[in-house]
Amino acid sequence: MTTIEWTEQTWNPTSGCDRISPGCDNCYALTMAKRLKGMGSAKYQTDGDPRTSGPGFALTTHPSALTEPLRWKKPRKIFVNSMSDLFHARVPREFLTQVFAVMAATPQHTYQILTKRPERAARILTDLCACGTGHPPGEHFRSSMEWAATSHSPTYVPGLQHGIYHRTGWPLPNVWIGTSIENNDYARRVDALRQTPAAVRFISAEPLLGPLNNVSLHGIDWVIIGGESGPGARPLRTAWVHDLIADSRAAGAAPFVKQLGTVWARDTYWVGKSIAAHGDTKGGKPEYWPTELRVREYPNKTAEQVG
């Protein structure tokens, strides 16, 4: 299970990543990987490039983790790769095929994939088959999922049944794909996301480091909003949150305010007090927020007002 407010379970078929933008500067996963390496966790023993990654945080695939969702019978929302980026350039295309085959084989779950590399997601998931028979976009990648369910295939995933290709629509109806965007400088990620086939497209504006007033939310279904937490956290202005909630609703996207961040909690609510003593170091307790920010909605579902 997980304490992440907008999901119910995490699944990490890969671990590790590389920082590529300011939103990565205080990456919680990088810090956690260093800790897990020190604890002897087998997944986190390979170091990444110190310029962009760190101890225990080299991009690594974990074939043994592929079958985990097959054992989860109860439907749940699953955040794919809380400790990595599924569309990192060093995740082999064949491994992506295996991941998508598992998701196709478990339609009871809803998978939430979050990437800072939506350009690669768009390229792969709109791939044109080179066989010359005129398959539509995505058909080549989708049909390769069937190969992962064939026992003599080098990409075979134990437990998958034949016929995945024929039993699923495209894009997979239980897969949501999102991109992280921290300020206007990375609006291009949203443009790439719009080109990516997905049942639900979403934005994670966390950590929100500036206004997103130059970002079009056309074609976006869900917007997660959050301030940065932890040592060295950068400030969030509630005006940015107000505007993003309004822009989301105007575009037909569901807003979900996750947290207001450590700086907001320290300087706005727990002024002169220890925020740790109140158990809200992330500014994540809606009962302390301005009323109009207490909103946590999901796409195509009834709004869940909190606080």
Results as ranks from 00 to 15, higher is better:
A198L: 09
V99S: 11
A253W: 06
R188E: 10
E8D: 09
K34Q: 12
L293I: 05
S143P: 00
K273R: 11
K37F: 05
K43Q: 14
V80K: 07
P50G: 01
I275H: 05
L86G: 09
C131T: 00
W270V: 10
E228N: 14
F141K: 02
A277Q: 06
E182S: 09
Y156Q: 09
K258A: 10
I224M: 12
R234T: 02
T110I: 03
Q9F: 12
Q305P: 08
L114T: 02
S143W: 08
A205D: 02
L66I: 10
W147Y: 10
I224N: 07
M1Q: 07
T262R: 08
G134A: 02
C131D: 12
I203A: 00
D49N: 11
T302Y: 08
N300L: 06
S153W: 01
R120C: 06
G219P: 06
P158I: 00
L86I: 08
L59M: 08
H166R: 10
L96H: 10
G226E: 04
V91A: 05
L236E: 01
F202Y: 12
M145F: 04
V257F: 01
G56V: 01
G54D: 00
D127W: 09
K37D: 15
G210F: 02
D49G: 07
H135T: 09
A29H: 03
A303M: 02
A254V: 01
S180Y: 04
D25E: 14
R142K: 15
T52R: 13
D18M: 04
V271P: 13
T291I: 15
A250P: 00
I164M: 15
D185R: 11
E139V: 07
Y269S: 12
N12T: 11
D185P: 02
T60N: 14
W170K: 06
F100K: 09
L30K: 14
S21C: 13
T3S: 09
L86R: 00
K116V: 01
W11M: 02
S41H: 10
P22F: 01
D47F: 02
E146C: 07
V223W: 00
H140I: 03
G261S: 09
V271T: 13
E206N: 08
I124K: 09
H135K: 13
P69C: 12
N214D: 11
I224G: 03
W264E: 11
A192I: 05
I181L: 13
A101K: 06
T3I: 06
P118G: 07
A101G: 05
I203V: 13
H109Q: 03
N12F: 01
A246R: 05
L36D: 11
T281Q: 04
H162L: 13
W270L: 10
H62K: 12
C24E: 04
T115K: 10
I275L: 14
F79S: 11
E5Y: 03
G38V: 04
